[in-house]
Design a protein around this nucleic acid. Structure first.
Length: 588
RNA sequence: GGCCCAGUAGUUCAGUCGGUUUAGAACGCUAGCCUGUCACGCUAGAGGUCGAGGGUUCGAGUCCCUUCUGGGUCGCCA
């Protein structure tokens, strides 16, 4: 038998024709002398019918059919006696003349249906069954579409797709590397790439002008709902560009891919916000701009207050800021406000001060320590109205931003403040070039050591490196970091200066990135690029809450794969070839 | 490494204060009946290491300790 149609692709024109369809048995309804089977393939369902009166032998065979059997049927497509309006192919059915049971099936541990409520553990172990579910199939088909549109768009804009190696040299900064032992060189290791960063810059030196790759990347760090140890980036790099060129090209890409893949039309150019503005207004470098509740700085008002929690934080160089949860006063009990305090403590706050505004009265955890004037000034500054719940954190700026930024999201979620239909793209730009690493007591590159400083900030490299802004940009969608990149340094003298600032001696720089520095000696175009997290992009497009749902075979939280049992022990012989000896671990 | 949630039939769950003969329900599964079902229906039945180990107790699915598994999160992720 040769298949003529996919299940859901039959049309009215096929009525009366003999067709052959193949697939899995979704559901069997055995009425005795009449058996209905819903046959499923990638496209959907089609009802097939076995009638005892037409062919006794065929009917007896059909009695054996069970869920998830793989069968092939030949038959005639007919109009149904009773139409099912809830089914795409509900007008028709196949009157079967020939049946082949291609494969039997045991009762599956996962029911194949649109919304499974099966546990993650079972889904991961039986991933092949989980992937039979229509929504999982849709997710992976969407992923395929996005990959295709990506290649089309960048191809049309002069980008060349080039593969970079998976076995590379370890570069110590950044995330923990996955290592691969060398058989040929005892004691030496390849690393798996955390991103193709250095290779794509070298491709610019090679003159390819524009590079694109849908690249697998690896980072040996702990997992999250939106983080897997191996993940996929849409990675690109362009020559002879500055920041606006990169932004424009990628806005075009996002506009196109959202339109073609999911029919969502977005306006370009996107909103652009500097890092410093994002932190100030939202306490986050990836603000969700679908709602307000922005941070309000009350430091000036309480600078000289006798309330030590506030004045002490300010004396130590910190600040006091608030968010006003409009109308949330009556919605939160004391117990729930305590829960909000716990949220802020997660991010290092020592506590949270609050005011509930009532008609002609306020309830508060702290205003008794303030003067009447200070309280009134605060209420005015935060635009307090009856019904408002105002939350304050006083600490270092880092803790204040972190805790209030997350508290803002937490309250918005709890009170359904977020308009889920919004698609808010946002560029966050001008991240600081350096951060001070308290442990190592030195400046480290915020993005990576090849990121260019803003031209006008270059003079500050010598005086105030912490204030130097960089030519960086992150693309944020509804509070999720979708990607980021930068314009790179192409000037050798400037590069040397940066290395020096982050405490790399010439020797060290040579040892770590020598090949790149060597390449830069032979004529380097100005260049910059960006990488999108493909998994996250698909997750948001498919409205999933975990990237596991858009990856065919993801890892679970401890980075293992329950389906295959990886990672696993290997033969002693394999280890010997790789010059690896197992060391007994001490249990302490 | 820390904190939080969950683990009882193939699946999803209920199981009260530690005590009610044999740990229940729904779906699924098995068998029989059924000619227009599509949440098919009806009848009967099978199915349990209550994640594992230890402890407390006259008595543990229930309390305590340890551990495993899955999830969320902080740290981590240039």
């Amino acid at each position: 038998m040769k298949r003529t149609h996919m299940c859901a692709e039959v049309t009215a024109e096929d009525i009366g024709r003999e067709i052959v369809v193949m697939g899995w048995v979704q559901k069997r309804r055995d009425l005795g002398k009449l058996i209905f089977v819903d046959l499923r393939d990638r496209t959907g369902l089609l009802q097939i019918v076995f009638k005892d009166e037409l062919d006794k032998e065929l009917h007896d065979k059909a009695v054996q059919i069970r869920n998830e059997f793989v069968i092939a049927v030949r038959g005639t497509l007919e109009n149904r006696e009773v139409i099912n309006p809830n089914m795409a192919t509900g007008n028709w059915e196949v009157i079967v003349s020939e049946l082949r049971i291609l494969s039997k099936a045991e009762t599956p541990p996962i029911h194949i249906e649109e919304d499974s409520d099966t546990s993650e553990a079972t889904r991961m172990k039986y991933r092949y069954l989980d992937l039979r579910r229509p929504n999982m199939q849709r997710n992976l088909i969407l992923r395929h579409k996005v990959a295709k549109i990506t290649r089309d768009y960048f191809d049309e804009n002069g980008f060349i797709e080039i593969e970079t190696p998976i076995l590379i040299k370890s570069t110590p900064e950044g995330a923990r590397d996955y290592l691969v032992p060398s058989r040929v060189f005892p004691g030496r290791y390849f690393a798996l790439p955390q991103s193709p960063q250095l290779f794509k810059q070298i491709l610019m030196v090679s003159g390819f002008d524009r590079y694109i790759q849908i690249a697998k990347c690896f980072r040996d760090e702990d997992l999250r709902a939106d983080r897997q140890p191996e993940f996929t980036q849409i990675d690109l790099e362009m020559s002879f560009v500055d920041v606006p060129d990169v932004l424009e090209m990628n806005e075009g890409f996002l506009k196109r891919v959202f339109s073609e893949a999911i029919g969502v039309e977005v306006q370009t150019p996107f909103q652009v916000m500097t890092y410093s503005e994002a932190m100030d207004r939202f306490g986050s470098d990836k603000p969700d701009t679908r709602f307000g509740m922005e941070l309000i700085d009350v430091t000036d008002i309480v600078k000289n207050t006798s309330f030590k929690v506030f004045s002490g934080a300010i004396e130590n160089g910190g600040s006091v800021r608030a968010i006003n949860a409009k109308g949330c006063g009556p919605k939160f009990s004391r117990k729930q406000i305590d829960a909000l305090t716990e949220v802020t403590k997660t991010y290092g706050a020592k506590g949270m001060a609050w005011i509930v505004v009532e008609e002609g009265n306020i309830k508060s955890s702290f205003t008794k320590y303030l003067s009447e004037d200070e309280t009134q000034q605060i209420l005015k500054k935060v635009n307090a109205e009856p019904g408002d719940l105002i939350c304050f954190v006083a600490d270092t700026n880092k803790v204040v931003f972190d805790s209030l930024g997350h508290l803002r999201l937490d309250i918005a979620q709890k009170t359904n403040l977020i308009d889920e239909s919004k698609v808010n793209f946002l560029w966050v730009t001008e991240f600081p070039l350096f951060e001070f690493d308290d442990e190592e007591k030195r400046w480290v590159a915020t993005h990576h050591p090849f990121t260019a400083p803003m031209d006008e900030d270059i003079p500050m490299l010598d005086t105030e490196p912490g204030k130097v802004r960089s030519k960086t940009y992150d693309i944020i969608l509804n509070g999720v970091e979708l990607g980021g990149g930068s314009v790179r340094i192409h000037d050798q003298e400037l590069q040397k200066k940066i290395f020096k600032l982050i405490g790399f001696s010439d020797d060290e720089a040579q040892k770590r990135f020598g090949f790149l520095l060597e390449a830069f000696k032979y004529g380097t175009p100005p260049h910059g690029g960006l990488a999108f997290g493909l998994d996250r992009m698909i997750m948001l497009m498919a409205k999933c809450s975990s990237i596991r749902d858009v990856i065919a075979f993801p890892k679970v939280q401890n980075s293992s794969c329950p389906m295959t049992g990886a990672p696993d022990l290997v033969d002693e012989k394999q280890l010997k070839e790789l010059h690896i000896q197992q060391v007994e671990m001490d249990d302490e």
